[in-house]
Amino acid sequence: MNMMHEIVKEWLEQEKIDLFIGYKVVDGHPLPCFFTRENIDDVDNLVESKARYPLEKIAAKVYSTHPEMKIGILARDCNQRALNVLYVWNQLDPEKIETVGINCCPSPAREHADCSYLEREPSGPLKTLIGIENNLKPEQAEVYSQEERFKRWSYEFEKCIKCYGCRNICPVCFCKECSLEHSDLIKKGELPVEIPIFHLVRAVHMAGRCIDCGLCEDACPANIPLRLLYREVNQITARLFDYRAGTDSGQSPFSILGENVTLEPMSL
């Protein structure tokens, strides 16, 4: 029994939490799992798991039906950022959440990098030639000319098979109705998706919201460098509004546009 097990057991016993969301290995596969007071011995099977799932999204689901429940959650840095975003948007009550933190993160949103989620394999030669490498940093993508950039992104978007996985897995996507599915905004029933609006609409929604956990890119069957795209829009939000999703907690970016606003016009 390690320290994590001890903490979780203690919390459950002391009724600090009613359930704990973590992982457990089943047939060699780590799966998201709930640990409860009733099955407290099961906590010994709690693992950190290399495979990451949007645990906080699961927590939000629980909250929507059982708002009284106190939830413990295994939180990598990305989970913690996602939780902060969900607090901001009233999808979870911070009063009801306790986290067991794991110190790891490959995102530039945090500096240290001992995350179990490692950098992706380097891209193949064709992708380097006509697409966008997944590991590129926004500054590196900016060396492409506007036209070149558009062409390369169009190639990436062209590959999309419209699984909506990027949205479905996204821990901070919670809308009951999704703009991506508004047929008047984005044409339906066809592959490829309408380029580039499908991905740009999603990018717009990720501005000030994406916490760079990388789950979308993991889930993308077409290997589209979505993280880079959302990092770009997030940088704009940070520059224009000085708002960093997931790290600036407590306020929605809309509240920042509060009573006294002096917006200095800046070029994008």
Partner: peptide
């Protein structure tokens, strides 16, 4: 909304 702008450009 940004969607209007995107839709127009699209």
């Amino acid at each position: 909304s940004p969607h209007y702008i995107l839709r127009a450009l699209q």
